[in-house]
Computed example of a mutant assay.
Amino acid sequence: MRTTRRLVLRGFLEADREPFARMNADPEVMRHLQGPMSRERSDAFVRRIGVCWAERGYGLWALERRDSGEFLGYTGLWPADVLPSGPAVEVGWRLARPAWGHGFATEAATEALRLAFTDVGLDEVVSFTPAVNTASLGVMRRIGLRRDPGRDFDHPRVDATAYPELVRHLVHALDASAWRADVARSGRS
């Protein structure tokens, strides 16, 4: 578990399954992810998150507001096996609509980068999203990731017939030395 100024980043609880499933069933939340997710798929995702933490020592955190305990979504690190350049670790986030526009994704993802480069000892973290997902592209820039256009790719798991606008993914990346330099420049610890 970690805390930031406004957030608690923690493991998923049984009580999170319902708000998590509601979030994953929201067409607006899922519009860049090929549409809503069923409750069964949402629950299976929670199980995979637990396995990831157990096997790798990193994964996705449930996010809650420190002041109210409200479930907001998730952020964290996830294995990425779809990049043509090879396996990587992705920093990612998904927030329920009421949590949009408050800087929660940026705040939480900044903490996920700290986990990646200090506790886990990763050399690099990536993030990628369809070109139409301007909100996530903004988060990537705010947390210090840099565009890596040479690694952009057509996502092999996107249904190109149903979602042609979601096929092309833009890649951002950050290596540990650049992260350390950014932290030193900003005075964050």
Rank of each mutant, 00 (worst) to 15 (best):
M1T: 10
T4D: 00
T4R: 00
L7M: 04
L13G: 07
D16R: 03
F20C: 04
F20A: 03
A21R: 03
A21N: 02
R22W: 02
R22M: 08
N24C: 09
A25I: 06
A25D: 04
A25G: 07
E28P: 08
V29Y: 01
R31G: 06
L33D: 10
S38Y: 12
S42E: 13
D43L: 11
R47D: 15
G50I: 12
R56Y: 07
G57N: 05
G57E: 06
Y58G: 00
L63D: 00
E64M: 04
G69H: 11
L72E: 01
G73E: 06
G76F: 05
L77Q: 00
A80E: 14
L83E: 08
P84F: 06
S85T: 15
A88V: 10
E90F: 10
R97L: 13
P98E: 13
W100H: 11
G101N: 15
G101F: 15
G103Q: 08
F104E: 06
E107T: 09
A108R: 01
T118Y: 10
V125T: 02
T129Q: 07
T134W: 09
T134N: 12
A135Q: 13
R141V: 14
R141C: 08
R142I: 07
R142P: 02
I143Y: 00
I143K: 00
L145E: 00
D148Q: 15
D148T: 15
D154E: 13
H155R: 06
H155L: 03
R157E: 14
V158R: 04
A160N: 08
T161M: 09
Y163D: 08
P164C: 12
E165L: 12
H172G: 01
A173E: 04
A178F: 11
A181Y: 09
V183G: 04
S186M: 06
S189H: 14
